[in-house]
Design a protein around this nucleic acid. Structure first.
Lengths: 239, 239
DNA sequence: GTATACACGATTGTATCCAATCCTGATATT
DNA sequence: AATATCAGGATTGGATACAATCGTGTATAC
């Protein structure tokens, strides 16, 4: 039903619909950005990307535009697109917004705790722990993000799900900019706590837990580190 | 700084930047939709629009795409674009999301109650009352929406401002679909109450006020039947 | 040696073009 | 009479072409 490429990155609805070519590209670029294979500030020329994906600039532009509207890439007039570099203020705003929303949606998750969407959370935690044990760092980060998105989806509210998905993607980008290795490691494996609190009817405690959880992630964003090397898109997206 | 056409509809930052042609079109269409001059379900053929705005289809497509990502227009493959017709579920989700977010952001507004953005709220209320006295109905509705967006902006968080702006635009569309004249009239002129509560440090009361306020709007659309010339059979016969 | 002016290359912005798809109406068949 | 089939027109999807703009590098003037 929904056509949000951002949400579809995290949740894979059973009926996988026929995604158009440009949405596939959106997803691949999105994945590359949150995986930190495309660093903030990286230029995204339409020609090279079109060549890499074997489509014309028209399709690439459509994809870049969608990403731009999510603030994941920035487009300046006559200067092209590049992976966004949110300022410190914007970074703070993203995390504040996440705290505000994700804390507030917990009661709704509690209401829906018997839904299928909620059960999915346990699977995600299990996968997350497995990835942690096996040292699959990249995968663990990915699963951690998916957990937060799934929590929003578990309210049964798709609009909220999309909003949180967008904020989560932005968070990955921000951590890629300002974060250290501890930024992503700090929240490993403790998501079980939250589920326990919810299932034992401790909604208020679950909310404070989430508040601290997100604050902890935000606090780790302190040191700057910039990058800006050109990337070989062909080898990255070799069809 | 920000490039959100949706937010720019409501707040006019002092430095009005050079907006590109397609963003002007986005704004005009957006305005037409929330003003109910373009009813839900109205087809939006690229040729006619291009002719009307005196640009090529390329530019129109870009504009339509941006609106589609905001869920204000729906685009089906090879079937073109039309003004969105959110189903009852989606409509409910939008208002639930608004309640959740707008209630939760009130403490942040309280913190920022000495900012310029907050002072703007008083101006809006004054204009709103003036419009009500003079019977300028359309304008009053517009100002009511701007108040809610400005409230989010008054948190100092632009990300939240955009989120709320998007939800507010969608609300206008939904009211246009399912609402009656009472839907928009019910909240007239009472925004002063909220400001009073905030300024007298009654944050919790302000929150319950907002909760009831948004619930009241939602209830008017929840009970009424479909309006408009062409009927939304999907929501009527619940697919 | 420094700074300004200009020209060239690269990249984006917009328009137009052609193929693919869908809807409508008409015709044919049972 | 009802359903199925098929052609025509209209509209979109995607690629290409041309114009506009920006950045860079070089040359020239002081």
């Amino acid at each position: 039903m929904t056509h949000s490429p951002n949400l579809s990155l995290y949740v894979t609805p059973p009926g996988s619909k026929a995604t158009s070519r440009d949405e596939q590209i959106v997803r691949e670029l999105l994945q590359a950005i949150v995986d930190r294979r495309l660093r903030p500030g990286t230029r995204l020329p339409e020609d090279s990307l079109g060549e890499a994906f074997k489509v014309s600039r028209t399709t690439i532009r459509k994809a870049l535009q969608k990403l731009a509207q999510q603030r994941l890439v920035s487009m300046e007039h006559n200067r092209g697109a590049r992976v966004a570099q949110p300022g410190r203020k914007e970074a703070a705003d993203v995390f504040k917004a996440r705290r505000l929303i994700e804390v507030a949606l917990i009661p709704a998750v509690y209401e829906n705790r018997h839904s299928d969407a909620y059960k999915e959370l346990h699977d995600l935690v299990a996968q997350e722990k497995a990835a942690h044990r096996e040292g699959k760092f990249q995968e663990e980060v990915q699963l951690s993000a998916r957990f937060h998105v799934q929590l929003a989806v578990a309210t049964g509210n798709l609009i909220l799900g999309e909003q949180v998905a967008q904020l989560t993607s932005l968070s990955s980008l921000i951590i890629s900019l300002y974060g250290t290795s501890s930024s992503v490691g700090c929240d490993c494996g403790e998501h079980t706590e939250l589920l326990k609190l919810i299932e034992s009817n401790q909604v208020a405690e679950a909310q404070t837990w989430m508040d601290h959880h997100l604050d902890a992630i935000y606090q780790t964003i302190n040191t700057t580190q910039d990058s800006g090397d050109d990337v070989d898109f062909k080898s990255m997206f070799s069809a």
